[in-house]
């Protein structure tokens, strides 16, 4: 049981990395990876929200959609629930965990539109994970996201000091680095 969960976590964080092999959540991956600090902020917020939303969407799918045979509604219901959840979490943090709220800052509401969140929720349902497995999958996936965005941010910080050919400056070199990272992450495929 535990062994299965560990394998699942390794698989979804490294081997099937959400950004680098599933191409989900590319927008924040490229958008907020200019500095390691902001990348970490985004990563933490994503871990927080994906883990929570995995639990909530798992519960909704299990106890609301399945009994009524309405699983075809999952996408729209999940979007609704995730958006509301992010709003709620934001309010909660603002009231009770002011320091975490200011640390996550603008990234928290941005996550509503991060497709990785919806992606994880739907993967959980499609692969028929139990709620515990789904939560672990969600957590591991978001850790994988954080790892890759922080690595990319590190690379971009280093690139600031390099003399990049003019045609590659800005987004092109970032996309090239992201592609090379994806190839590097292919190496994890032999892990499992």
């Amino acid at each position: 049981m535990i062994k299965n969960l560990i394998l699942l976590a390794l698989g979804s964080s490294l081997v099937n990395n959400v950004v680098l092999s599933q191409f989900l959540g590319i927008c924040p991956f490229l958008g907020v990876s200019k500095k390691i600090k902001t990348a970490l902020g985004m990563g933490t917020a994503v871990i927080f929200v994906i883990t929570l939303s995995s639990i909530v969407t798992g519960l909704i799918h299990e106890f609301l959609l399945k009994p009524f045979d309405l699983t075809f509604l999952k996408t729209i219901v999940f979007i609704l629930v995730i958006a509301a959840l992010v709003q709620f979490v934001e309010m909660f943090l603002k009231k009770y965990l002011k320091s975490l709220y200011s640390a996550l800052g603008v990234y928290l509401p941005l996550i509503t539109t991060n497709c990785a969140v919806l992606g994880v929720a739907i993967t959980n349902v499609n692969k028929e994970y139990s709620i515990l497995e789904g939560t672990v999958n969600g957590f591991a996936t978001s850790v994988g996201f954080t790892v890759s965005i922080v690595i990319l941010a590190g690379i971009r910080e280093k690139m600031e000091y390099n003399n990049i050919p003019k045609a590659f400056r800005g987004m092109p070199i970032v996309l090239v680095s992201a592609g090379l990272m994806a190839i590097a992450f292919c190496g994890f495929a032999g892990l499992l």
Partner: peptide, 27 residues
Amino acid sequence: MLSVAILGGVGVFVGIFLGIATKVFKV
């Protein structure tokens, strides 16, 4: 009808829930 009811129900619930939450967690 069932889909409309469930989806509408979820929507209304979420709306009311967030509405209450704004009041409760008002800073």
